[in-house]
Every structure is written in structure tokens, then in C-alpha cells.
Design a protein around this nucleic acid. Structure first.
Length: 566
RNA sequence: GCGCCCGUAGCUCAGUGGAUAGAGUAUUGGCCUCCGGAGCCAAGGGUCACAGGUUCGAAUCCUGUCGGGCGCGCCA
């Protein structure tokens, strides 16, 4: 709706501008929503911007423009204010139309009117299977899934992908840790790997491995039965990876996040893509040999030093398969790629992009896009929570879900800009009371549902009790200041979603929902819906139903439920 | 030392170059014979880290300084 209003206003001003200052008719007139209601529904500073080129006082320009505006069915008044702002007030009919549009569109309200049909891949979480997911992964999961949903709302075809390393040194380390714990369980003291994994889960996996091979710890012949199995490090590795992948999948499912594809780093070696990329880079003349290693000249592409691709021992550094992986994204037809990662990985950005550019195969310079997020600090009882029994040295996603529930975790983790450090206050998230923003928004949704239920009970048969049919209601009775402000807020939603998608910033949606819910709660407290007068009753219920629809649509983008009862 | 990000109310944080910088929370004081009080109304609380610059106009853009986080190995 707001897009139509903007287009309409732009047309009015373009016409006025052509009359007043034909030499400036190319100027683009921008409209913004003033912070203060007294400044109207929209305002433009075009007169201020034209003051210099036209060499006239801004207020005089504003006056000429206002005088030259063609008549409009939507525009109620244009007023000049302050140094030369033009404040525009819309007729109630323009705002009331928003309510009807929302009820007619239902779940699709907020989706782009003109879909941008691009194939986009969003890579997120990408945790290596060496332990349970930690809170950083949780932030990535919440962010990545919301970003993907936002892009879908803009009409893109979105592919959610999880990339993981199933073969490197860390995995080797995992296998050795499990092996050592298994020996311990059998009463054999073995040295624990220096950089081994210490969480309780390692012991569980070790137990699982023994059990899977029919070895019980109290069996006097356990050791001799198990030894061959335990010394098969490759088998231990496969077992451990499978166990941890299964656990991560359970956690992701509990978090409401699903992926279209899991991409294995090892497959890039197996299918020759890594070797192919190296050969292509050498052939492109972007490499050199030094100290027995092969280097990529990343400094040609903005990096601050060249990087080793192939170490002197003949193995590749991690970023080579990373480049090969991103080539597959391009070759799979994803014109846009977004990677959600912790900001501790920002060193890889320049390297991956440089590698892709050095190949010279037509991949755009900024490919892929990165959303880098800062660390999450978890607070509980006024102190930082640093450990969990299961994982050892870090707090897991599962810990958070167990503490405060999925909805609160997801809402909290997307309610901050990615690049801001984030303090997650467990006590705040857990309190089911007024200080919790998740429940505040959900409560507004449940409240409206309850009002609609009571409407059906009190006035059976009215519009068939169908909330969607409230779109048929005459909305002219909606003339109160709160009502018009609410409709204006509802009208902002599609623009807001578009902006959040453009900026890859789901926190904008979270803040919008907080504000919308707040305005609704105020309205609820000030007015009644189930009034005796039929036209007013239906008009207000239509407004409430529209609010509920937008709350539900917004919460869905964030992966948070919209309950009818709480 | 170099690079990236951040610095806004006691705390946690919003803030597309626009008008008097906003929420939540905390504190204080009010509101339920009435559709869900997980709610509402109100008050107090600010050197937008600091200093220059660009601009009709700067929390926002540029430069520098200070403070914090992260990254800078033939680790991933």
C-alpha cells in the first residue's frame, strides 16, 4: 500500500516540479515518514535541496511547489514547516485502504509486489562436526534463516546450505579424543591428545562406539575385543562424525531451522575440484613458488599479503577448498551468495574473493556477500555463563533452548544488528512477564485472536464469523488518531521488509514488531472492539485482524510462532 | 604494528544526511464492576567517546585521537 502512496506522491511532485522549476525536473523527490505525528504522514525536503541550485529561499520554493500540486484523491493537505519542509497529510480513505489490502492479501502481505527472481544461496551455521552447536552457531542459524526468509519474501528463490569440514586436522583430533576416552573407559590410561576435545559428549560417543561393537565395559575381555576396533582410527572418525552430525541435526530441528543441502568439504577433494582450481590458478599466472610452497598473489586483489595455497608438505591450506566450494555456488547458478559467519572469520573474506577473481571466470567482484556477526555473551544470574557440562568450554544452542524456549532464543538472537556484540540475558529472556519483548509481541497476537473469538461468540453469523471477510467491512468509521496511526504503521510493513532484505538486517523486523505490538496494546487499552454499533464494531475488528495478520507475517519471517493462546 | 567492526540514557540496544535523538529494562507514581494486567498511562534520566572537517542541515559522511572486540603462521 505504502508503495502506491509513495508513487502517487512522487507523481504529484514531479508534475509540480516541472511547472515550478523545469530546469530541475530531473531531481528525485524523496519522501520520508516523519518521527513526529504533528509533521504529517509523509514529508519531503526537496525544497531545501533545491535552494542552492535555484538560488531562492527554501520556503519560497516550497510554497511554489505546494501551489503547483495537482488535485489528488488521497492528499488532504500540504503544509510548509520549519526551514522549508513540506509536510503531507493523507486523507483517511488512503489509510483505511491499507487495512483492506492486508486482509485481502493475508499471508502474502509484505511480499514484494514486483518479485526479484534471483537464485540466491545462503550459507550459514556450517559447523564442523566436532561438538554440539554453540551460541555463535545459534546466532548464525537465527540470522541466516531469517535472512533467507526475507529474501524469499522479495521473490528470490533461496537455497539454504550448510558446509562442513569432515576430513581435516580438527576431525582427526576428534577421532583421537574419542579413542582416548574409549581406552579410559576400558581402564587403560592413555595420553589425551594435546588439543583434544574435553566435553562430556566425547565420552558418550566413546561409549556408543564400544556398544556398537558389542563391547561392555564390565566385560573382562573388553579390551582385547575392542582393541582392533579402537585402533581403526578411520572407523572411530566416521562414527564420531555421524554421531555429532545427528546431534547437530536434532538441535537445528529443535530450533526450527532446516537446510536444503549439506555440502561436504571432503567431496571437493574427491571429485577433483580442489585440484582443478589449483591448476586453473597456476595457469592464470596468479601463483608462484617460494620456500617449497605454492602461493596465490592475493595482493593483486586487495589482500594485504599473499597467501599460501599448497604447503611444503604438499597439502592444501583451508582456503583452497573454500575457493573451490564457492566456484560451485557460482556454477550451480546462484547469482547471489550470502555467507553468515562469525566475525572471527573475516580474514577469509579477502582470500576467497581474491581466489574467485584470480580465476577470471566472470564472477562479480563482491561475490560472495558476507554477514559477519559478533560474539554472543550469555549472562545468567548477573554473571557470565561460560561453560556447559556437555560441551565443556562453551554454552550450546541446546542450553539456550532448554533455558528459555525456542521462540525467545530466536527472537533475541535476531533482535540486534549482526555487527553488534550481543549480551544474551537468560533471566530476561526467561521471564514470562512484561519485560520480555517476545511475549509482548506474541501477546498482542493472542489478544486479538481472543477478541475475534469473542466476537464470533457474541455475534454469531456476522460475516460468517470469518476474520478474512472483515475486508468487506466499511472502514470509514476508523477516524480516531490511534486508528489512523495504526493503519499508517501497518502500511509501512512492506517497505520495512524490503529494506530488511536489502540490508540483510532482520533486526529491523524485530523492532518493527515491537512497535506495532506497542501501538496495538495502547489502542486496545483506550478503545473497545465489541461495541454495540455494528459499523464501528466491524471496522475496528477489521483493523485488529489486519494487525494480527502483520504480526503473524513478521513473526514467521523470524521463525517465531504466533500463538492464538498463551 | 597493520586490517575489519563497535563506542548513543544506570543497564541492553534502535536510529535510511533532516525538525525537540528514541525503545526496552531499571527507578518513582497512577490505571482492572469493562473484549486476556504477559497490558496501559505518566515522570525523571543524554557532552550521541573526543577533536577537527564537508553540508542549508551531522549520532549518521571524511580525517585524526582515545577506548573495546576480533583477525593478522605453510591453523580451520
Amino acid at each position: 500500500m505504502s508503495a502506491e502512496i509513495r508513487a502517487h506522491l512522487a507523481e504529484l511532485f514531479t508534475t509540480a516540479l516541472a511547472r515550478v522549476a523545469p530546469q530541475q525536473s530531473a531531481a528525485v523527490v524523496e519522501f520520508e515518514r516523519p518521527k513526529q505525528a504533528a509533521h504529517g504522514d509523509y514529508s519531503t525536503s526537496v525544497a531545501l535541496q533545491l535552494a542552492k541550485p535555484l538560488a531562492k529561499p527554501p520556503r519560497a520554493i516550497a510554497q511554489s511547489l505546494v501551489d503547483a500540486l495537482p488535485p489528488s484523491a488521497w492528499l488532504e493537505a500540504a503544509e510548509i514547516a520549519g526551514p522549508g519542509f513540506i509536510n503531507l497529510r493523507l486523507k483517511p480513505a488512503a489509510k483505511q485502504a491499507t487495512v483492506r489490502a492486508i486482509l485481502a492479501a493475508g499471508r502474502t502481505y509484505g511480499r514484494a509486489a514486483r518479485p526479484a527472481r534471483q537464485r540466491v544461496i545462503v550459507e550459514f551455521v556450517s559447523a564442523n562436526p566436532t561438538g554440539p552447536l554453540h551460541v555463535g552457531h545459534g546466532r548464525q542459524a537465527a540470522l541466516g534463516d531469517a535472512i533467507a526468509a526475507l529474501l524469499e519474501a522479495q521473490g528470490h528463490t533461496v537455497h539454504r546450505e550448510f558446509y562442513y569440514n569432515d576430513a581435516g586436522a580438527q576431525i582427526e583430533n576428534l577421532a583421537k579424543s574419542v579413542q582416548a576416552r574409549a581406552y579410559e573407559l576400558l581402564g587403560v590410561a592413555v595420553p589425551f591428545p594435546e588439543d583434544g576435545y574435553h566435553g562430556d559428549y566425547i565420552r558418550e560417543i566413546a561409549q556408543g562406539y564400544l556398544a556398537a561393537h558389542g563391547v561392555a565395559a564390565d566385560d573382562p575381555h573388553a579390551l582385547e575385543k575392542a582393541k582392533a576396533r579402537l585402533d581403526d582410527l578411520d572407523a572411530v572418525r566416521r562414527f564420531a562424525v555421524a554421531a555429532l552430525r545427528a546431534e547437530q541435526d536434532r538441535d537445528l530441528k529443535a530450533f526450527g531451522v532446516a537446510f536444503d543441502q549439506y555440502y561436504l568439504e571432503s567431496s571437493l577433494y574427491a571429485d577433483g575440484r580442489v585440484a582443478k582450481v589449483v591448476a586453473a590458478l597456476v595457469a592464470a599466472g596468479k601463483t608462484y613458488e617460494k620456500d617449497g610452497a605454492l602461493w596465490l598473489i592475493t595482493t593483486d586483489f586487495g589482500d594485504d599479503k599473499d597467501r599460501v595455497m599448497r604447503k611444503s608438505d604438499g597439502t592444501y591450506t583451508y582456503f583452497v577448498p573454500d575457493v573451490a566450494y564457492h566456484v560451485t555456488k557460482w556454477e550451480r547458478g546462484f547469482g547471489k551468495a550470502i555467507n553468515v559467519q562469525g566475525s572471527d572469520h573475516h580474514g577469509t573474506v579477502a582470500r576467497v574473493r581474491a581466489g574467485l577473481q584470480a580465476l577470471g571466470i566472470g564472477i562479480p567482484e563482491g561475490y560472495p556477500d558476507y554477514v559477519l556477526h559478533k560474539m554472543v555473551t550469555v549472562m545468567k544470574g548477573g554473571a557470565e555463563m561460560k561453560i556447559s557440562k556437555r560441551a565443556g568450554s562453551y554454552v550450546t544452542v541446546r542450553d539456550l533452548i532448554d533455558e528459555v524456549g525456542r521462540d525467545a532464543v530466536r527472537f533475541f538472537l535476531v533482535s540486534r544488528k549482526a555487527e553488534a556484540e550481543f549480551v544474551f540475558d537468560i533471566d530476561l529472556a526467561r521471564s514470562q512477564s512484561e519485560e520480555n519483548p517476545v511475549y509482548y509481541v506474541q501477546y498482542a497476537h493472542a489478544r486479538i485472536s481472543s477478541v475475534l473469538d469473542q466476537w464470533r461468540a457474541a455475534h454469531p453469523g456476522e460475516l460468517g464469523g470469518d476474520a478474512a471477510r472483515l475486508a468487506e467491512a466499511d472502514l470509514a468509521p476508523l477516524t480516531g488518531a490511534r486508528e489512523l496511526a495504526l493503519t499508517a504503521r501497518l502500511g509501512e510493513y512492506p517497505d520495512l521488509v524490503a529494506q530488511a532484505a536489502r540490508e540483510l538486517a532482520p533486526h529491523l523486523v524485530a523492532f518493527y514488531l515491537r512497535e506495532l505490538a506497542g501501538e496495538f496494546h495502547s489502542y486496545y487499552n483506550a478503545e473497545r472492539f465489541l461495541v454495540p454499533e455494528l459499523p464501528l464494531r466491524l471496522a475496528r475488528l477489521a483493523l485488529a485482524a489486519a494487525v494480527r495478520q502483520v504480526l503473524a507475517n513478521g513473526l514467521a519471517l523470524l521463525g517465531v510462532s504466533a500463538p492464538e493462546k498463551m
